[in-house]
Amino acid sequence: MKVGVCVKRVPETGARITLTSDDQAIDTSLLGFTISPHEECAVEEALRIAERHGGSTTVLTLGPAAASEQLKNAMAMGIASAVLLETDGGDWSAEATAAALAEAMRAQPEPFDLLLFGNEAADSGDYQVGVRVAHTLGLPCVTGIKGIEIDDGRLTARREAGGGWEIFELPLPAVVTVKEGINLPRYASIQGRLRAKKTPIERIQPQPRASALETIRLVVPPEHETHVEVLGAGADAAQRVVAVFRELGLVGL
């Protein structure tokens, strides 16, 4: 079984987002970077599937040269090989990203049996790259998955819906986009880090393409200003808290 997993390098935003002066990007001068949360779970799931069923794992990303940090992090967790589709750092549209990824996947010496994505990237939130790759490669696809089982060439996928679960079955090869909660990602081991450091990354120069969805500028939405009433400090505030509950009609008078 050959499992591919796609990740995206995104800033760790903390408590407040600040933009660059031209409003075209987040000011990342003081920020660290990470793999988008759903995708970190996709990496873990790829490792678990390869451990259970045997096979190889490959991580792919489209991003600037610095995104090799995220590929190394995935390899430190245990992913065997990495492909960087290197850009000049600007935002790529979902269509262009998917087209470049699909081309890189096709160029692999052996086809993938399973391709994992995050349900949506934390930053752009486009909800579509995995589906587009699936269409380009002619593979079945399901999104928003929080449970995967593979048995005899068929994949069973679970999606949370209305507090219960919807269960899908797909033939392999297939594309699945996952959500955080499917697993708890492992930490990288020391040996993993050392191995990742030594493993070379395959580099590809993808061709950009224009999109009919064009970003004009980014805007930090106005803060929801509230007037905070401090009800007190410590346990003595309990009476006043219960008075608030009463005011809201949450408890009887």
Binding site: T226, V228, V230, G232, A237, G252
Partner: peptide
């Protein structure tokens, strides 16, 4: 940061405050 988004705040140790709220609710017959 969450305090700036709040309507009401109680400052202190939740392990003392939450049980006190529960006790107060019980006292009021909730």
């Amino acid at each position: 940061p969450i305090v700036a988004r709040a309507d009401w705040a109680v400052i202190g140790d939740l392990h003392e405050i939450v049980p006190a709220i529960v006790a107060e609710l019980r006292k009021n017959g909730a």
